[in-house]
Amino acid sequence: MIQRKLITCTINGNKIQTMVDVRASLTDMLRNDYRLTSVKKGCEVGECGACNVMIDGECFNSCIYLAVWADSKHIRTVESLLGSAGELHPIQQAFVDEGAVQCGYCTPGFIMTALEIVQSGRQYTRDELKKLLSGHLCRCTGYENIVNAVEKAMKGTAQSIPETISRHRPATR
């Protein structure tokens, strides 16, 4: 009865093949099947940005992205940013240093958009950065320190961001 479809995709550098319920969102698949719980649910209709992940280098709200659409795509979540010895990515470090974290629920989503910004290699003005971050809601920080952290990461590391993806091995079903 339940319609399932076989998809093949890469999650945080690991190639996987899995049957997904055609009705499932990518959020559901990442959270439930692969326990990538950095992908948060805040609204499930694409309004808050907490479920933001990178798909082929571009950020999407995974709650309104069907799991079946992930077929042949490269998906990246915050779990992939850590170095092999647990060292923080410069963007993560900037969030820590700038006091950009409070309850932490919106944080992984923001960090993925920050990664997209930093990877673009472009230097944006503060107003441009705010526009780029405006798909994310945060109720704790007033955004001030988040914008500071993204600005710092962009200025400090635009040229030197390592492109390595740590070999995070997702759990199987």
């Binding site: 950095s38 915050v78 779990e79 940013l81 923080l88 993560q92 240093d97 974290v101 944080t107 992984p108």
Partner: peptide, 13 residues
């Protein structure tokens, strides 16, 4: 720095 900052920026919290 916050005692929970590392766990929160890595998505481990």
């Amino acid at each position: 720095p916050r005692v929970d900052a590392y766990d929160k920026v890595t998505g481990r919290a």
